[in-house]
Simulated assay, not measured.
Amino acid sequence: MEQHPRRLLTVVTESTIESHLLRDMERWGAHGYTITEARGKGARGVREGNWEANRNLRIEVVCDDVTADRIAAGLREHYYDNYAMILYTCDVDVLRREKF
């Protein structure tokens, strides 16, 4: 089984910016993504998701290193100062490199 290295970029942020964020992430090179609802506690308090303004999303993008770096730089520049957001990456191996 042949494996191909990629990066998994994960963003946890406020659901209110979803459409803007996805538009920008695609502009910065994301070919696809997976979105799930997320709850938790962090520097900005508890995010329980029990009302629209208090919902979080986890957005995952599998891509190459250059794209992950470009998206991360864009997020830091355009979103970090004004929105609750965390971002992390990890190395992953994919079996179908043509999808990523």
Rank of each mutant, 00 (worst) to 15 (best):
I59F: 04
E48P: 00
G74V: 12
R58F: 06
L87H: 05
N82H: 07
H78S: 01
V46E: 12
A73K: 08
A68S: 08
E60V: 06
V61C: 02
A53P: 06
G40Q: 02
I86K: 01
G74W: 08
D64G: 13
D65M: 11
R47W: 15
N56E: 04
A43E: 07
D69V: 03
N50M: 10
T67P: 09
D64K: 00
I59A: 03
I86H: 01
R76G: 05
G74Q: 09
R55F: 10
R70T: 15
R70K: 15
N50Y: 05
V62S: 01
H78I: 00
L87F: 10
D81H: 10
H78R: 14
R44P: 00
I71A: 06
Y80P: 00
L57W: 07
N56P: 14
D65Q: 14
R70L: 12
R70D: 02
A84P: 14
A73P: 03
L75Q: 00
R55M: 04
E48V: 05
H78G: 05
W51N: 03
R55W: 10
A43H: 13
A72Q: 10
I86F: 09
V62W: 07
R44A: 14
D65W: 09
A72R: 13
G49Y: 10
G45K: 08
T67G: 07
A72V: 09
N50S: 08
G49W: 06
N82F: 10
D81A: 15
M85F: 13
A53I: 02
R47I: 08
L57C: 05
G40V: 12
E77M: 00
G42F: 06
L57R: 10
E48R: 12
I59M: 06
V62F: 12
N54F: 05
I59G: 01
R39L: 02
R76A: 10
V46Y: 15
V61T: 07
V66N: 03
R76I: 14
A72Y: 12
V61Q: 02
D81R: 11
E77W: 02
M85C: 11
E60P: 08
A53M: 07
R58Y: 03
G49L: 03
A68C: 09
N82P: 00
A72N: 07
M85I: 15
A73M: 09
G42S: 07
W51L: 07
A43D: 04
R58H: 06
L87T: 12
L75D: 01
G74P: 05
D81M: 01
G49I: 06
N56M: 03
N54D: 10
I86P: 01
A53S: 11
E60T: 11
R44G: 05
E77F: 06
I71Q: 02
Y83G: 00
D64S: 09
V66L: 10
T67D: 00
D69H: 11
